[in-house]
Design a binder for these strands. Sequence first.
DNA 1: CGGATTGATGCGTTTCATGCACTGAAAAAT
DNA 2: ATTTTTCAGTGCATGAAACGCATCAATCCG
Lengths: 307, 307
Amino acid sequence: MKRINPDLNSLRAFVMLANAGGFRPAAEALGLSGPALSRQIARLEERLGTRLFDRDTRNLHLTPSGQELLTIAGRLLHEAGKAVEEFEAFLAARRGRVSVAGLPSITAGLLPPLIAQFVAGRPNLDVRVLDALSDRVAAAVLDGSADFGLTAGASDAAGRLAFRRLLDDPFYAVAAPGGPLDDLDEVGWQDLVSLPFIAMAQGTSVRALTDAALVQIGAAFEPRFEVSHLATAGALVAEGLGVSALPGLTLPVIGGASLVVRPLKAPEVTRRIGLVFLAGRTLSPAAQDLIDLVFRLVRGPLGRDGA
Amino acid sequence: MKRINPDLNSLRAFVMLANAGGFRPAAEALGLSGPALSRQIARLEERLGTRLFDRDTRNLHLTPSGQELLTIAGRLLHEAGKAVEEFEAFLAARRGRVSVAGLPSITAGLLPPLIAQFVAGRPNLDVRVLDALSDRVAAAVLDGSADFGLTAGASDAAGRLAFRRLLDDPFYAVAAPGGPLDDLDEVGWQDLVSLPFIAMAQGTSVRALTDAALVQIGAAFEPRFEVSHLATAGALVAEGLGVSALPGLTLPVIGGASLVVRPLKAPEVTRRIGLVFLAGRTLSPAAQDLIDLVFRLVRGPLGRDGA
DNA sequence: CGGATTGATGCGTTTCATGCACTGAAAAAT
DNA sequence: ATTTTTCAGTGCATGAAACGCATCAATCCG
């Protein structure tokens, strides 16, 4: 048997005619001329191989087949409407899921208020945040488990990732109140090497930049403590066990407000934070929207904690 | 916002392309040329206002929007397939419901084996049988609660009903074994009037014909018993309380095999059984099939209990 | 560095749907 | 009873949409 292929417009016309009870009102409701509707029904009947209406010039009645089709077509059109609505919601970034991968300092310090603003009024939009170190962020973007990443520097893999600079995050020296930084306005890297230093673990972007800065000034690096998590570093600093050098974005995460924070100079080191995404790939509307929001709020009003 | 109107062919093409992973195999599977498919996708993208594939000459990847559409379109196409399947099943008379109205003698005597044959292999086809007297059969057909009726004579209503003759059902005289008919080969109506007569109630087709026959021979009619149901009449006859005159189709219902049955002559009275349906209205495929089966089996091989 | 493969584009053709004008039939009005 | 109106269907021409063929640009392979 040849495959019947209903087209939705015909079905819409059919349902409209069945409900209107006459060609004239149905045609008008459809924005069609009378003859056009007449032919549309005739075509549909021919394609389906059945008469759908018993009609003479004065009366119009659904045949049993028409009655059956009315039920089925009504349901299908309803499904189609829902499908369109769903997809439009997705396109309008009101529905779907955005997965962001980012460095812990970013996901904890920068992102939360932005995400709060982003999801406001979008109850069906889910946001996943994946916090990981730089290379795992890149990996997550590469394998598709994150729509995009916010990380430091453009490490990276065979040109398959694109990078867009978001902001430069300068390093600060941090110490406990009553510690060695109290009387200084600004600190040089050289000043730090003689102090007990709390370093981030190998593999973190902070550590890589710290190492680079120390190499630049030709200093040997002997960290007193080495930790993986910012919160730990912060707690050690607060306890007065040492000093550290950290990018500005990390400060809110470690409770920088109760520490002594000083600009770090000689050299001025900044962590280049940016967007990482698959080169040549279109992003979902929601992801694109979130990115736009991030860039707008971070770059525009220079305030980095939104609202 | 302008209403997006997806057409199923585009979606089919899209899904096919997404699954095939390349234009060439997808186009072939769709029976289209390469360029046709290319344009179809381009049109769909334009209509939806989104790119669905990130593609260059060598790679083809769904965009997030494409991924979303794939899910939604797949579901919708599945629904459409089910809808077509359902409707085709209805057209093929494998699904749906047939409502038959008929005289009790027909629904009980003639119909059951036909219905058994009819529903064999059609598990999703329901049959409703409405047994009622002649005028209620007509009423049921008129108001649509029955697809068609099997009844006696073309009584009927303002030409809105059409009648098609099925068979002529001759009357027989029936009595208990050991009763007055034992020694006769055939019986005349005149012979019956002197015997205790068990008559069907007023309003039945049997009674109307009985009255007419007796008027024709100028006999007064004084039934000894008057009953509404065939089974009662049969039981009274079997008990030897009287004789009756009944059409052949009723005999199986009353257990005619254990009674004495003789052809009734002078005059030969037949009940004209036929099909009643709404004039000018198309019947459902299933109803039409059942009608065809009834006519074929009743008229053709003269056997009235099928198989 | 050529040949082959893949998706896109130009162009002419075909198919399909639509609108206008008109026909034929049936109900309503006179 | 006759005319008028109403309604769905048909002839015909127009316009849009989709298609195939030929070709092009970009990429991969040998």
